[in-house]
Amino acid sequence: MDYKFEVAVIPVSDVDRAIHFYKTLGWRQDAEFADDEGYRLTQFTPPGSPASIIFGTGVTNAVPGSTEGLHLIVDDVVAAREDLVGRGVEVSEIFHDKTGIFHHAGTDARVDGPAPDRTSYGSYLSFSDPDGNGWVLQEVTTRLPGRV
């Protein structure tokens, strides 16, 4: 039995502002549905990703901006940062964790610059959407065994 991760629901306070933001990122808007009772759902997919995000009105009871640690995998964190900055997105500087493993929560244990020797899984940058939902870009150049 396969269990494929398909979608994450993120809480936003202003659906139209969020739509504008994710379009600015260059993400594909896959769907938008609304009914006469105020329910509204929008789905976006990052380029090259099999998984999407959904946000809207009536799709989650979570507090807008309360999602953190959503990870996007890129093969070049420097180029990804340049792309996001070029799109007008406020992003962190590139960093790695002092442990050399997965990053700590928030900004704890961040070390400026990419991981030594740009080791796969070691370099990051972060940004937030207008509500504060937190995204992390992680550079992966060589996958761990069993990963595709």
Results as ranks from 00 to 15, higher is better:
Asp35Pro: 10
Asp76Cys: 06
Asp112Glu: 13
Asp129Lys: 07
Glu82Ala: 11
Ser123Asn: 08
Ala115Trp: 05
Thr45Glu: 02
Glu37Arg: 15
Lys4Gly: 00
Gly65Asp: 10
Asp83Gln: 10
Tyr121Ile: 08
Val148Asp: 15
Pro116His: 07
Gly134Tyr: 03
Val7Glu: 13
Ser126Ile: 01
Thr45Arg: 12
Phe127Thr: 01
Asp83Trp: 05
Asp97His: 08
Val15Ala: 14
Val85Arg: 09
Val85Asn: 01
Ser49Ala: 13
Phe44Gly: 01
Gly69Asn: 11
Val74Met: 04
Leu125Val: 08
His20Asn: 09
Gly69Trp: 08
Val7Tyr: 04
Asp36Ala: 12
Ala8Leu: 11
Gly88Cys: 05
Ile94Arg: 04
Gly86Phe: 02
Ser123Met: 12
Ile54Ser: 14
Val59Tyr: 13
Ala34Tyr: 04
Ala109Val: 01
Thr67Val: 15
Asn133Ile: 01
Leu72Arg: 11
Val91Phe: 11
Asp2Arg: 08
Val85Gln: 10
Ser128Trp: 03
Arg110Cys: 14
Thr99Lys: 09
Tyr22Ser: 00
Ala8His: 03
Pro114Met: 08
Gly106Arg: 14
Phe33Trp: 13
His103Val: 13
Asp76Ala: 01
Tyr124Thr: 14
Met1Val: 00
Glu37Asp: 15
Ser13Gln: 13
Arg28His: 03
Ala79Lys: 14
Leu125Gly: 10
Leu137Ile: 03
Ser92Asn: 12
Gly122Asp: 04
Asp14His: 13
Gly26Ile: 02
Asp117Gln: 15
Asp16Ser: 14
Glu82Val: 00
Ser128Gly: 12
Leu41Thr: 02
Asp36Phe: 11
Pro64Ile: 12
Val77Ile: 15
Asp35Met: 09
Gly56Ala: 07
His104Arg: 15
Leu84Lys: 04
Leu41Tyr: 12
Ala105Cys: 05
Thr141Lys: 05
Arg17Gln: 14
Gly146Val: 02
Trp135Ile: 09
Asp108Ser: 14
Arg110Phe: 11
Arg110Tyr: 09
Leu25Ile: 01
Leu41Met: 13
Phe21Trp: 02
Gly48Ser: 03
Asp129Val: 06
Gly65Val: 09
Thr45Met: 00
Ala109Tyr: 14
Glu6Thr: 13
Gly146Asn: 05
Ile10Asp: 01
Val12Ile: 11
Asn61Phe: 15
Trp135Arg: 05
Gly132Ala: 06
Phe44Trp: 03
Pro114Trp: 10
Asp35Gln: 09
Asp16Cys: 10
Glu32Gln: 11
Ser120His: 06
Thr60Ala: 08
Glu82Gly: 14
Ser92Glu: 08
Pro145Ser: 06
Arg81Lys: 15
Ala34Glu: 13
Asn133Arg: 04
Val91Ala: 11
Val7Asp: 06
Phe33Asn: 07
Ile54Lys: 14
Thr24Tyr: 00
Val78His: 09
Thr24Trp: 01
Ser66Met: 11
His104Pro: 13
Asp131Val: 04
His103Leu: 10
Ile73Trp: 06
Phe21Met: 02
Lys4Leu: 03
Thr142Val: 13
Ser52Gln: 01
Tyr121Thr: 07
Trp135Tyr: 14
Thr119Gln: 15
Ser126Leu: 08
Phe95Gly: 09
Val136Arg: 06
Pro145Phe: 03
Ser52Lys: 01
Lys98Gly: 03
Val9Phe: 14
Leu72Ser: 10
Ala51Cys: 05
Lys23His: 12
Asn133Asp: 01
Phe21Ser: 00
Tyr121Glu: 09
Thr57Arg: 12
Glu37Cys: 06
Val77Gly: 05
Arg147Leu: 08
Gly146Leu: 04
